[in-house]
Every structure is written in structure tokens, then in C-alpha cells.
Design a protein around this nucleic acid. Structure first.
Lengths: 345, 345
DNA sequence: CGCACTTGCTAATCCGATTTAACGGAGGTC
DNA sequence: GACCTCCGTTAAATCGGATTAGCAAGTGCG
């Protein structure tokens, strides 16, 4: 890759000034007095030569690379994916920063190697991200560095976390159902333990249920039951099928993910039940599929884009970062899967 | 971000040798003779001090940053997304390289700014990627640099392209149907022009149809018709609905994307038709949803992961890059949406 | 014994910027 | 006229490594 041929020395020479003057003129610093004449000569020479600064050389001296490392356990997996990165990229671009994206696959050795690679390249900060919200322990290499945790929590690790506001999301879902008049015949599909391995249960599931129960309690509504299962399409299909087979007649479903909802749609269709006439559904995530379903799915969106953006904005703010958690709101995407409650039949 | 405190000079001092010796010992070069004793002293000192090289400083001298720029018009949009990056990341990691990921949003000014940012940071090469296969004209800044085009073609631009083998994919889809005995009553949904704006029509669509027609011709089978439409769920739903309404009775559908297939499933279900008993479906893409559908969708996969991997492998190979196109095979994911052809009714 | 050759290591540069310290000339003061 | 102070500018050092040129001690050989 033929490097930038033109150096600042070339520009200085052409402008007939010293490299020092060229440097000050180009960086536009005002604390060193440069005459307008000299500045213009330099700028002109730089333009004529097509001068581009060598960020590597600059970074060596200034200790700032205008670069951020993004370390994630997985970036591809649904639903925590491209949007996060897009949000991060956007915020980074607004501040002239570039992002090194890496993926560890959950392997500690790989993670360590990647973090070192990032640090060796003098990144100004690193975003430590997780695919689903849970507790993590960042690698030792990151201690004392400028870090923001994205979609994860690390008690004892001194860095801010940016996470979705799942409690409020639970409330939002609950209110959506209540607003349509649903107070009974409501089942949750998915529940708490999507990822059994997680020490404290699944963060998102627990918080959502808490928020949901809270507004239900306040409104005198009740959850008939929770079908605990994984959060995939087949789980939703199976559990709703089972519910129906057991003779239950749910009038509203709170599904943990849009995938679960899709499974619910399939089971309901097989049973000849219509959404939202017979059964209303409110979901979480807002994956693409939510808009493809018929009827389109009303769901509480995971604010991927916003999470990525906030993390970068936070990390690029001036001043030290303190341990704190930033909860990003999860907006309701109102579509067509919630219908008015009908009197019990 | 507190930089790496320990420099090579520190290591040299501690080992009681010159920085030169330390440099050679650490880089493990054999063309300069270093005694085992000295080498060990250096290595030991480095380990004790927790020395980490400053890649920025190194890159300044060596002109190699072990870094690749990835420029894409969009990275988030389905279906061309995370998997590509994952493949690229994997291949890069295998060669100790890091990736700068950027997204232009299709804006030339943004693209130019991003590419310059990449070049300023002395990336060794850049991958110029597109979300869907089409013709592009890379920005002038990239001329003469080490570039690999990913999922796009740029006639006149001297760089290799890595693209999915859509012609063969068309053949694969055709053969899948033929193997099940389908030779008639076959309709294509989606067709050629998913992206009307593209000069030569949609690359993928055209090539797939060509491959499909080819094997059909050879086998004496025929396509009853092509419903030209966009490639989204609603288009599949609408077009299949229309086909049915017009009195057609398709026995097999070739859908341009899994989204279109999903729409077809919906329309078929409404009409009381069963997949694959009444209608067989073969699709393209292999998005997640293909596995979630009931019955699961048989589809020809876009080799996202492999595309990303190949592009990076190619770019990291020694020697100059020449204009050429590398077609990555699109494997058939056999699931349950193709059933045996039944005698015409 | 003396010359050529190795071997093992180091001093000095360089990469392309930023930054510090200082310098020459103009203008002002007494 | 001597002394100061600004101003605009520049020489030189620096960042952390890689690389080139060369140096001193040891070896081989006639």
C-alpha cells in the first residue's frame, strides 16, 4: 500500500517555512502566533500537494490515536448485532474517531489476545460489549483503562455500563395490555431463564417480569402463569401449543422475544385462533420479523442503535469515567397484535 | 488511557544490552546474530516488566500497521451483515491483523472522509464492500492502493472481487426442484429487479434466473412465469396472492429471498394451501427465518461468512492483487419446503 | 605472526509528526 | 543609544521502535 508520499516537511519546504510553522498552521492552533501570510502559504502548499497527515506519527507523539476498540463476545448473533455497531460507528464518526471491531467468541484467550492487540495499537478507549445483558468480568488488561461496558454489568470493575432499561420495558408491555383492557387470561411465554447458565438468572427476563408484575399489581390485573422456556421460535410454538392442549384459553400473551412470538403465532394459527381477535400478543426486541408477521407484531424494542451510540458518546466525553449505569429507554413499537379485551367467554 | 509505560529501552536497560539488541531479540529475527544468552536476558526482562510493543511506533518505521480498513455502504441491513464481518474478523485474527470497520450509508462525501481517515491511519489495505451485489465505483482515494472488492464489481478498477456464485446458485435451486420431480407449474417470485436503480438490473436476480433457466432447459422443464417484484415479505405475500387470485395453481415456487418466501407462506396459508404438499418452495439467502418457518425453508445460502473470510485472506496474501473475480459457492440448505411433484390435477 | 573473516553487539539514523526552547528583528521607553 | 519587550519563526528534542553501518574481540589459516 503506497503510503502518503507527501509529508509535512514537503509542505513546509514548498511553502518556504519551517516544519514547525507548517505544523502550527495545519493544526490551526492559536496558542502559537502564526501570521496570516505564513498560514495561507502553508495551507496552499498543503492543498497543492494533496497533503494528508500521518495519523500514526501524530499519535506517537500526542498519545492519542483517535481510535476506539470495540470488543464483543459476538457481533453477529440475533438480535444484538449490527445496529449496535452502527450506532457506535455513527457516534464515532461525529467525533472523527475510527473503530476497531473485534469478536472474541466468548473465549478468554482470544479475548486477551484481541485486547492486547487493541492496546498495542494505542486505542484511546475500549468498549466492552456483550450480546445479551449479563454480568461479565473484563480481562485484567483492561483494568485502569478507559472503558465503557455495553449491554453488560461488571460489579467491582470501575467503569460505566450502558444497558437497556428492561424494568421500564416490562412496565411498557404491561401498560400496553392494560390500555387495551386486558386484566386477565394473560400468560407470559419465555419468562426469566433464557440463559440458564447465567448466575443470577437472565437479567432481561427478570427485570421485564418485575416491571410487568408491578404495573399489573397496581392495576389489579394478573398474570395467569409463566411458561418458562428458552427464547426461540420452537419454544414459543411448543409452549403455546402445550397451553392450548392443556385447555387454557389465553387472551393475551407476553412473549420474551419476537422469535417466541413467531412460534406463538404458528401454534395459534394451527389451533385456528386469530391474533389479535382471539389472542393479543405483546413482545420484546423488535427484530425485523416483527414487521413481517401478519398481523404485524407490537413489541418493545431493544434500543440497539441507541446503546451503541450512547456508549461511544460516553467514552468520548471529557473527564474521567465513573462506575454508573446508564439505562436506555426501550420504546414500544405499536403495531397490530394487540386487540381490545373482550368479556370472558 | 494510560499508555504502556514500559518501552523497549526499559527492557534493554534491565537486560543490560543496547536497544538494538533488544529489538532484534524481541522481533526474533534471525538475520542478525544474537547470542542465546543475550536473547534470553532480553526475553526475561520483557516478561518481568510486562513489556508490550507500541504498534504505532513500529508502524511508523516499518510502514505496516497490521491493520485493514473495511468500508461498507451498510453493514446492518439484512441479509448482508454480521456474518460477513465475522468471517473477515476471523481471517484477520488468524494473521494478527485488526479491522477498522466503517459504514458510509451510501454517501460519497462520508465515504471519502472515512477512506481518508483509514488511509491517514496507515491501513495496509482496504476492503470495499457492498450490501448487495452490484457495480460500484470506488472513491479516487483508493486508486493504486491495495483493495479487494467484496460483494461488488468495479470494471476498470484494478482489484479483485469476491462475490457469491449466483449463476451456480440458480442451477442449484433448479436442480433441487428437478430432483423432486418438478418440471411444470413452477413460478418465480421476485425475479430480476429487486433494485430497480441498478444500471444492469439486479445482479443476483439476473444470474440466478440464468442458472435456473439453464438447468430447466436442459431437463425439459419450464418456468410458467416470473412475478417481478421487490424482494420483501409483503411483495411475496402480494404476488403469490395475486397468482392464486388469477386462478393459477403453482406447484412450485422459486422465491428470490427468504423474506419473499415468508410472504408466500402467508399467502398460501390463507388460501388453505400446504407447503410442501400442495406447493414446494425453494428460496435464496438462508436468513435465520428460514429455519424458523414451518415447514423449515429449503434455501440456497448466501455465503456471507465465507465471503468475508475470502476477502481478507486474499488481501493478506503476498504479492500484488490483480483484477479478477472470485466466486464463492452458495450451498443448498435442504430443509422441508420441497415435496415430491404430484401428477397434474 | 599477521591478515581476513566471523561473531556479537552497539551507536547513530530514520519514520513523520508535535512541542519546547530560543533567536533575530521591530518597536517602545527612558 | 542602551535596554526591554513583543512577534513571528525556527532549530532541536521527542515519541518508541526498526534498521544500517560499523566496531571490538575472537577464530582460522597460511
Amino acid at each position: 500500500m503506497p503510503a502518503n508520499r507527501v509529508t509535512m516537511a514537503d509542505v513546509a519546504r514548498r511553502a518556504g517555512v519551517s516544519p514547525t510553522t507548517a505544523s502550527f498552521a495545519l493544526s490551526g492552533r492559536t496558542d502559537m502566533r502564526i501570521s496570516d501570510a505564513a498560514r495561507n502559504k502553508v495551507l496552499e502548499a498543503a492543498a497543492e500537494l494533496g497533503y494528508r497527515p500521518n495519523a500514526t506519527a501524530r499519535s506517537l507523539r500526542t498519545k492519542s490515536s483517535q481510535t476506539i476498540g470495540f470488543v464483543s463476545d459476538a457481533i453477529t448473533t440475533t438480535p444484538f448485532a449490527g445496529e449496535v455497531i452502527r450506532g457506535a460507528l455513527e457516534a464515532a464518526r461525529a467525533k472523527e474517531h475510527l473503530l476497531f471491531i473485534t469478536e472474541t467468541g466468548g473465549d478468554r484467550a482470544v479475548e486477551s489476545g484481541l485486547v492486547n492487540g487493541l492496546l498495542d495499537r494505542q486505542v484511546d478507549a475500549v468498549i466492552y460489549a456483550a450480546m445479551y445483558t449479563h454480568y461479565v468480568t473484563p480481562p485484567p488488561e483492561l483494568h485502569g483503562r478507559r472503558v465503557v461496558l455495553l449491554n453488560c454489568l461488571a460489579p467491582g470493575f470501575d467503569a460505566p455500563s450502558v444497558i437497556p432499561d428492561e424494568i421500564e420495558a416490562g412496565r411498557t408491555a404491561g401498560r400496553a395490555l392494560l390500555a387495551a383492557g386486558h386484566t386477565d387470561g394473560i400468560w407470559a411465554i419465555g419468562g426469566h431463564q433464557a440463559v440458564p447458565a447465567t448466575p443470577d438468572g437472565i437479567f432481561a427476563g427478570i427485570e421485564r417480569m418485575r416491571g410487568l408484575q408491578e404495573v399489573f399489581r397496581d392495576a389489579g390485573a394478573r398474570l395467569n402463569g409463566v411458561a418458562e422456556c428458552d427464547w426461540n421460535t420452537e419454544d414459543g410454538y411448543r409452549e403455546v401449543g402445550r397451553l392450548l392442549a392443556e385447555g387454557h384459553r389465553p387472551r393475551a400473551l407476553v412473549c420474551s422475544t419476537d422469535r417466541v412470538s413467531f412460534g406463538a403465532y404458528q401454534a395459534l394459527a394451527e389451533a385456528g385462533l386469530s391474533v389479535p381477535r382471539d389472542v393479543s400478543i405483546v413482545s420484546f426486541d423488535d427484530q425485523d420479523i416483527a414487521g413481517w408477521l401478519k398481523p404485524a407484531l407490537t413489541t418493545v424494542a431493544l434500543p440497539h442503535h441507541e446503546l451503541g451510540r450512547r456508549a461511544v458518546e460516553l467514552i468520548l466525553e471529557d473527564g474521567p469515567l465513573s462506575a454508573s449505569s446508564h439505562r436506555v429507554p426501550m420504546p414500544l413499537r405499536e403495531r397490530d397484535s394487540i386487540g381490545p379485551a373482550r368479556p370472558a367467554n
